[in-house]
Design a protein around this nucleic acid. Structure first.
Lengths: 216, 216
DNA sequence: TAGATTGTTAATCGATTAACAATC
DNA sequence: TAGATTGTTAATCGATTAACAATC
C-alpha cells in the first residue's frame, strides 16, 4: 500500500497521534481541517503533516484541506486497527492486569484470547472474563488457537525462557513490558518495547536539565 | 556538564539502555568492554556509542575500552538517578497502582511521597505504605511538601483540570499515562508521555507490514 | 614496543522544513 | 474567478556512520 518503498518508523510513530487528534476533532464536530491548523494544535509543522500523509496517498483536497472523519478512517486502516490479531498476555501481575483491564485491544488491531501466569494462586481466576491459564499449557493453547501477538508483562528473569517458547510457537509480534531486551537475539520478530524504566530515567534527566523555565 | 552545547533527545533516550546493559555486564562480572563489543550486544554501531558517550566526556581509555562499573556510574549520574525528586501519583486505578507497586522510583531519580484519587472508596487505603489521599487535598499537600514531579494515571476526561492545578502548584515534570496531550498548551514544563495506545497501534502496523520474516 | 581502542573530525545518510506549481 | 491549500520537489538541517590520528 505505501506509495514510497519504505515508510520510516518516525512517520509510523506519528500516525497514532494523528489518529488521536483527528478523533477529538470529529468528536467536537469539526469536519474539515487544513494541515496548517492541525500543525498548530499538534505542535509540529504543516509541511511534516503533508509529507507524512503523502507517504500513503493523497487524502486531502487542494484549497479545502482534509476531511477529518475520512482522514481518521484512512489512518486507522493504515494502522490496521481492525486486524483483530489473536493476542495473549503473559504474566497477570499488576502490570498485566492493568493492561488487560485498561487497553481497548479490539479497537487497536488486537483480539485478546488468553492470559497466562505461573502462580497457582491466581490460575483459574478471571480478568475481564478471561480465565487465567497455567503457563504450562502455553504450547497446547497456541497449537489450538494460533495467537500472533504476545504481551510480555512478566518478570525479567522469566522472560528469556518464555520468549524462546513463544518464538518457537510462531508468535510474530511482541508488546514487551519486561526489561528483557531480545531484539538482537530474535531479529525476525516484531518487537515494540515499552521500557517504563527507561522512560522514567529520561524524565529524570529532563527535569534535572530543564532549561525551559528560564527561556520563557 | 554537557561538553557540547545541547545534547539531542535521541542521545538522551539511549542512555537508560546503556545503563541497563552495563548493569547486566557488571552483574555478570565483566569489568571492561570495548565500544565494538558493546555495539554487538546492543545492536547498534560502535561509532554511535563513542559519539554518544563523548557528548558528556571521555569515559574510556585508548587501547583498553571502558570500565563497565565506572561507565555505569557516570551514566547514572548524568541521568540524575539519585536526584530524589519529590513525586506524586495522580490516580490510583489499575495503572496507577501497578506503577506505584512496580517502579523502582528511588533508584531512578524520584521519591514517591503521595498518591491521590477522587474515589471515596479507595481514599484512605494504602499502596506501598502510602495512604491514598483525596484529590481535594492536592493544594494543601503541595504547599506543604513541594513535589516537583507528577505521574498522571487518571482518566483523560479528568486530566485537563488536574494538570492546570498541578502546573499552578509548580510541578515541573510530568510522567503522563493519560491520553491527554498538553505539550502545546504548557510549553514550559517537562513532559514524558507514555501513550500506551499509540505504542499498541504502532505494533499493529508493524505486525501487519512485517517484512522481516521473508528476508531471512 | 606493538596492538588495540578511544576521541574526534569528516562524509554520508535520512528526516525535516521551505517553497511553489498544481488544482480544487 | 480568486483564494486557499494541497502534493511534491528542492534545500536545509541533524543524526548516524566511517575514518583515522592520538594514545594507552
Amino acid at each position: 500500500m505505501p506509495r514510497h518503498e519504505r515508510v520510516s518508523l518516525s512517520v509510523i510513530r506519528r500516525l497514532p497521534r494523528y489518529y488521536r487528534f483527528l478523533g477529538d476533532l470529529v468528536k467536537n464536530g469539526v469536519t474539515r481541517i487544513s494541515s496548517r491548523e492541525l500543525s498548530l494544535r499538534m505542535g509540529l509543522t504543516a509541511s511534516q503533516i503533508r509529507q507524512d500523509l503523502n507517504c500513503f496517498g493523497g487524502f486531502g483536497q487542494q484549497g479545502y484541506g482534509y476531511n477529518t472523519s475520512l482522514l481518521r478512517e484512512k489512518i486507522g486502516a493504515i494502522l490496521g486497527i481492525d486486524s483483530g490479531n489473536p493476542t495473549i498476555i503473559i504474566g497477570a501481575g499488576n502490570i498485566g492486569r492493568a493492561i488487560a483491564l485498561n487497553m481497548d485491544f479490539s479497537n487497536m488491531g488486537f483480539n485478546l484470547i488468553g492470559i497466562f501466569d505461573i502462580s497457582k494462586e491466581i490460575i483459574g481466576t478471571e480478568i475481564r472474563g478471561l480465565e487465567i491459564l497455567d503457563i504450562a499449557e502455553l504450547e497446547s493453547f497456541c497449537e489450538e488457537n494460533h495467537p500472533r501477538v504476545a504481551v510480555l508483562t512478566l518478570p525479567r528473569e522469566a522472560a528469556p525462557q518464555v520468549v524462546e517458547r513463544l518464538v518457537k510457537l510462531g508468535i510474530e509480534g511482541f508488546w514487551n513490558f519486561s526489561h528483557y531486551d531480545f531484539s538482537v537475539k530474535y531479529p525476525n520478530v516484531v518487537i515494540e518495547n515499552v521500557h517504563l524504566g527507561d522512560s522514567l530515567m529520561t524524565l529524570s534527566y529532563l527535569v534535572k536539565n530543564n532549561d525551559k523555565k528560564e527561556n520563557s
